[in-house]
């Protein structure tokens, strides 16, 4: 299981730090798949039947649906990330610190203070903290959506680890909330992209007209 969690954190790091937004969005697919695999494994090892449904839902929502809409969104904008609030090398260094220290620290906390939680608690909490860090350090809207995605995945893991017998209806309700929130994020970002494209076209036309006018004058 440990290897799965580390791989999960690696893809999260790639999604968070990749400057190419398309690549970052594609990294969410293995991340979602690894979440689903770990939930399947927990279902099998702990004999919790409701986890099979949750894992299937995770594949559908976290590994397919959400990354896909994000990739579709990127068709209407540049794939390069807007400049973050901190420099990229510093951001990478801090990410490594947050992920590695966070994971080890939370593992100790889990063993000492939360002995009854499932193993995904540590990864869940690390994702949550890392998502918050990304949210504060990034300025690009798509990166902010990815940060929200990571925070949500962290919360999902935390709920699974702490309340494995939670009613399925609540888990489905929370996933439904998550889908609606992401769709609204995409809606707003798409509309903003369209507006900025229109603005650029307008500006280009004005500049072009001014240039033609100057040329005719000469």
């Amino acid at each position: 299981m440990e290897i799965i969690y580390i791989a999960l954190l690696f893809f999260t790091f790639v999604a968070g730090e990749s400057r190419n937004l398309k690549f970052a969005s594609y990294s969410l697919i293995p991340q979602g798949l690894l979440i689903a695999i770990s939930v399947y494994l927990l279902a099998y090892m702990r004999n919790i039947s409701s986890f099979y449904l949750i894992a299937s839902l995770d594949i559908l929502v976290r590994a397919i649906l959400m990354p896909t809409v994000l990739i579709i969104l990127l068709k209407s904008r540049l794939e390069k990330e807007d400049k973050p609030t901190i420099t990229h090398p510093l951001s990478i260094a801090l990410s490594i610190v947050v992920l590695s220290v966070g994971y080890n620290f939370m593992d100790t906390i889990r063993i000492t203070s939360f002995p009854n939680v499932l193993s995904c608690f540590t990864a869940g909490f690390t994702l949550f903290i890392y998502g918050l860090f990304l949210l504060l350090s990034k300025r690009d809207m798509v990166k902010m959506i990815i940060s929200f995605f990571i925070i949500e995945n962290g919360i999902h893991f935390l709920i699974i680890s702490m309340l494995p017998n939670m009613p399925k209806t609540i888990e489905i309700g929370l996933t439904f909330n998550f889908i609606i929130a992401i769709l609204f994020f995409i809606y707003i970002t798409m509309k903003l992209n369209i507006l900025s494209i229109m603005e650029q076209v307008k500006k280009f036309k004005i500049d072009n007209n001014a240039f033609n006018f100057e040329e005719n004058k000469e």
């Binding site: 939360f114 939680v117 918050l132 949210l135 809207m141 902010m144 929200f148 925070i151 949500e152 919360i155 935390l158 709920i159 702490m162 309340l163 939670m166 929370l174 929130a181 609204f184 994020f185 707003i188 970002t189 903003l192």
Partner: peptide, 23 residues
């Protein structure tokens, strides 16, 4: 966008609170 992001992330903390009490 700002509203959606801040309120959604903020209220996730209260969800964590419910999880912690329940646990």
């Amino acid at each position: 966008f700002k509203y959606l992001l801040i309120v959604n992330v903020g209220i996730l903390f209260s969800l964590l609170g419910v999880v912690l009490v329940s646990y």
